[in-house]
Design a protein around this nucleic acid. Sequence first.
DNA 1: CAAGCACATTCCTTGACAGGCATATGCCGT
DNA 2: ACGGCATATGCCTGTCAAGGAATGTGCTTG
Lengths: 110, 110
Amino acid sequence: MPTDVFEALADPTRRRILDVLRAGERPVGELVALLGVAQPNVSKHLRTLDAAALVRVRVDGPRRHYALDPAGMRPLDAWLAPYREAWADRLDALERHLDSPDAPSTPTEE
Amino acid sequence: MPTDVFEALADPTRRRILDVLRAGERPVGELVALLGVAQPNVSKHLRTLDAAALVRVRVDGPRRHYALDPAGMRPLDAWLAPYREAWADRLDALERHLDSPDAPSTPTEE
DNA sequence: CAAGCACATTCCTTGACAGGCATATGCCGT
DNA sequence: ACGGCATATGCCTGTCAAGGAATGTGCTTG
């Protein structure tokens, strides 16, 4: 049952889990402590994230270390790409003809 | 009630609406026809998208033309940015390993 | 002012999901 | 094999969101 990435990211707790995992892999117990969420719930969220291919597991004895699988967000990024162009066009329509193939990392701040 | 962008994008119908709007602004009636969704539901989805600042309205007599507001996706893009870096690094490393005869670590589980 | 069009809002029902809780499963040391 | 730790799973409940149907609101034209 491969869960949709958008659906997986819709939940704030799951996004927090991913944000924590950005710093490196963690066993479930640490996530429970860091997030202040009950262990069964953390496990369930991890299951959803795994179904969306956003995390992967490394079994180490009785512990299970969960790590980020950033590649799982590529569908999201792919969907987002056309819109990113759209807003880039809006913001710098003046330099639309420039050769720069990629957008600057810090676009106009408002 | 400013709706969260992630929550707004979680619904497939709303993503379809946005995809249609990518081609240019549309009155509600056209969206109804193009999507095959009942008019009240389209209006409700548009309300949600508006609450998330993903669309904007141009009132023209009795019609209401909805247009994409791509800037509304910048929070999403900003949240995604760190992960994008992460997967770029990882895929790069993975590609290097793909040509190597031995695999030190096989992250993809079964 | 009445009627009609375009759209929004409300009510209702149904289904999905998160959280809390209890319990099952797997691994380890003794 | 037993007990204990780490994690997963199942059940229950409250909540919330989506879809359908009916109705309300605003603008327009006659």
